[in-house]
Amino acid sequence: MILELKNITMRFGGVTAIDNLSFGVKTGEIYGLIGPNGAGKTTLFNIVTRNYTQTEGEVIFNHEEISDLKPDMIVQRGIARTFQNIRLFKSMSVLENVLIGFHNQANYTYFESMFRLPRHFLFERKLKKEAMEMLERFGLVEFAEVNATSLSYGNQRKVEIARALATNPKLLLLDEPAAGMNPNETEDLSEIIRRIKDEFGLTILLIEHDMKFVNNMCDKVLVLDYGEEIFEGKPSDAIVNEKVIEAYLGDFKHA
């Protein structure tokens, strides 16, 4: 188990967004979180990345309780994420966006770069090379110097994933990676995700509404509804599960 959540409850004022939820993600798995809008999926992501602090419960990553860590330290421990609505740095080029991901691997101090001491150049050169390799993996080399937000939607998604990978994560959280993509782009994306998963030895936790994508990608899914677990298991079993269908489409029997 690389990530374990134990008895997580999250309340916003009187609203219970997540209610006593427990689950674990095994190392090397692609784990899907699905459920209707407002089910608490993104809240769960924000708890794992420490943007929110849960009301109750424990988050254990790599056998370590991480509830007291700050979001930036979570990244250093090896959890990276992408956002539901793409959030690239809009004043920067694609290359710079990816370089930001390498921030903590550039091991020079403020003064070393202010006075342009050798270590500055050493690391900058090394990271630029690594960033270009990362872009190459995603087929984005030709856009390296282009402003990131001027890319197509699909390519922006790729930049966001490349940026997250640059932080050298063990666990990658993808928030609706296929949203807004056409079937071709989705196909392309699944291929990339599989490839990087093997190459970097990643574990992936993803939120997605595209059931075909989920069915294709995930080893296991957790279905949430109103902050409660209604199903955990194989994606192919999820789509025929009565409770799941009910949560998505409503209750037919009493309609």
Partner: peptide, 24 residues
Amino acid sequence: SKFGRAMKAIRDDEDAATAMGINT
């Protein structure tokens, strides 16, 4: 330098900067 990039990142989107492991 990486510090300047991080500063610009904070200006553009502080949450995303934090998600890149930057201690804002």
